[in-house]
Computed example of a mutant assay.
Amino acid sequence: MTFVVGLTGGIGSGKSTVARRFEALGACIVDTDAIAHALTAAGGEAIAALREAFGDAYLTAEGALDRPRMRARVFADPQAKQQLEAILHPRIRARAEEAMARSRGPYVVLVVPLLLETGAYAQRVDRILVVDCPEELQIRRTMLRSGLDEAAVKSILATQISRAARLARADDVIDNSGPEEALGPQVDALHRKYLELAGAGQPARNL
């Protein structure tokens, strides 16, 4: 059985940057956000179901999911959120399982932004790695990256578990409150640890 590290963290914490560093060291990266984008791109597997559920008004002119419009809808309408999740989540999980089964790396880093909020992947990971930084830094980074205003970012943060709760569930933590160069030694050390655990062939935790 492949050794799987569940990588998570709040919005703007730097999960993608950390994942790229693990990938450079040879780990297999399975990113559920990337899978979701592929499913909802023009011609994506989920588009027909999304059109049936929400109509063409929630698709772009190119036929992809209109993500900003859908984000606004699900924040305002819990039923729409449930509909969206019912369409996307089973498909994302299926594609993630397929990708992990194809892995030829020494271990898998499964990137799941809401790993601890949903619990859907809890039984699939051997360790939980949290990328951590102060909330004010999360807000600033997300605003710079996405163009969302502070109120919009805070509304997203409100849907995620608290920083303290996330850290309480972590087996390993990467501190991303400093410059990007500070990530290297932390990722290197964890990579060595995960190679050792994967080589032992034993799960590192029981959820």
Rank of each mutant, 00 (worst) to 15 (best):
M1L: 14
M1E: 14
V5Y: 04
T8G: 02
G9Q: 00
G10E: 10
G10C: 04
G12Q: 09
S13H: 06
S16V: 10
R20G: 10
R20M: 08
G26I: 00
C28A: 14
V30H: 05
H37Q: 13
A42D: 12
G43P: 07
I47L: 11
I47F: 08
G55I: 08
A57M: 03
A57T: 12
A57H: 08
L59T: 08
A61G: 11
G63N: 10
D66A: 11
R69N: 12
R73L: 15
R73A: 03
V74I: 07
Q83V: 15
E85W: 02
H89T: 08
R91Y: 12
A94I: 10
R95C: 13
R95L: 15
M100T: 00
A101C: 13
V111K: 04
P113T: 01
E117S: 03
E117N: 00
I128N: 00
V131I: 06
P134M: 14
S146E: 13
G147R: 01
L148P: 03
T159A: 06
A164P: 03
R166V: 04
R169I: 02
R169L: 00
A170G: 06
D172S: 03
V173I: 12
N176I: 02
G178L: 15
P179G: 09
E180Y: 11
V187K: 04
D188H: 08
A189K: 09
L190N: 01
H191Y: 05
L195M: 12
R205D: 05
N206H: 13
L207R: 12
L207N: 15
